[in-house]
């Protein structure tokens, strides 16, 4: 496998490269990003590329040919929603478009794109388990989720135009663990966690190590299409907080959405419901396709992933 990776600074990009280099230090990897993180210097080939640039597609195609890459891992997405909606859209959607065009031009047959189970969206009429066939309804107010849905659409179009190509999109449930930082870990890091009064949805988690395993499997297997990823089991939000020994702050959602509105537009560009609806309605996925076809076997159940996150944060507080 000759791999090209976008998003060297992203959690998945950095960890997957580490795992591959650990297995085989001579593994040919080319990094496509604005700059090379210091930890990867002299370990992988690096070509500076601005995915949002006007001629980015031609430049990427040139690099992929030069490196004789046969597999692309696309992880250039923000883990936590970026404040600058315009820039986030440019990078995530237009950047993906450029990358897909370049891949189409060079005839690469394997592509793995990081998406998220958030693309299904929290909706009161979701079934208890969402399968890969379910419509991607996203959340109308969450710009990061809107962009991911758009990227998924682009990947589907790409797959339809290039039937020989294997395009995998991975849709992990909320990812938690000792080192990952995203909007869920940030929310649950608070001493007193804000919850919505009268709502207690079932939640589902994936451990960060399992996520990396799944990406490695997806790179390896000759398969295409979307895959949900999740640890087994679900737990109500109230039980999670009790397991973590955290107090919650139940707030009626109309009040919270009004009060937090001004506060949140300044900080994250999205109204509060873009996040809190994910703590209000179900968006649990059925991860059985990945288990069946990819051979993915998560080491952590949802509960164990959550406990790993909680315990690591408690330890950090002492160190």
């Amino acid at each position: 496998m000759r791999l090209a990776v976008t998003g060297l600074g992203s959690f998945v990009g950095a960890r997957v490269i580490e795992a591959l280099l650990e297995a085989d230090p001579e593994q040919p990897i080319v990094g496509l990003d604005l700059e090379l993180p210091a930890s990867l210097e002299d370990r992988i080939a690096f070509r500076p590329v601005d995915l949002t640039g006007p001629a980015a597609d031609a430049r990427i195609a040139e690099i992929l040919r030069e490196q004789r890459s046969d597999t692309v891992l696309h992880t250039a997405f923000f883990g936590t929603p970026h404040r600058d909606v315009e820039y986030a859209h440019e990078l995530e959607v237009v950047g993906s478009l450029h990358l897909l065009n370049a891949i189409g031009a060079t005839g690469i047959e394997k592509l793995v794109v990081m998406s998220s189970a958030e693309v299904y969206g929290p909706h009161p009429d979701n079934p208890n388990f969402l399968t890969e066939q379910h419509a991607l309804r996203g959340h109308p107010d969450a710009h990061s989720v809107r962009d991911r849905v758009e990227v998924e659409r682009l990947v589907r179009l790409f797959a339809a135009r290039h039937p020989r190509a294997r395009a995998v999109t991975l849709r992990p449930a909320a990812v938690v663990g000792p080192s990952i930082r995203n909007r869920f870990t940030r929310h649950f890091d608070a001493k007193r966690v804000t919850t919505l009064l009268g709502y207690d949805p079932l939640m589902q988690f994936l451990h960060e190590d399992d996520l990396i395993d799944a990406v490695l499997l997806a790179l390896d297997r000759d398969l295409g299409g979307p895959f949900n990823l999740s640890g087994s089991g679900v737990l109500p939000l109230s039980t999670l907080l009790r397991l973590a020994g955290k107090r919650n702050w139940p707030c009626p959602h109309p009040l919270l959405y009004t009060l937090r509105y001004l506060d949140s537009v300044g900080r994250s560009a999205d109204p509060p419901q873009a996040f809190y609806d994910y703590l209000r309605f179900l968006w649990v996925v059925d991860g059985s396709r990945a288990v069946r076809e990819l051979g993915f076997s998560p080491l952590y159940t949802s509960k164990e992933a959550w406990m790993s996150f909680v315990v690591s944060r408690k330890l950090e507080a002492y160190v």
Binding site: N128, L202, V234, L235, P236, S238, T239, R242, K303
Partner: peptide, 17 residues
């Protein structure tokens, strides 16, 4: 002891406690 303490730490996949 506290509200919610009379619940188990495991529910089935549809939330039955």
């Amino acid at each position: 002891q506290r509200w919610g303490a009379a619940r188990s730490a495991e529910v089935d996949e549809f939330g039955l406690d």
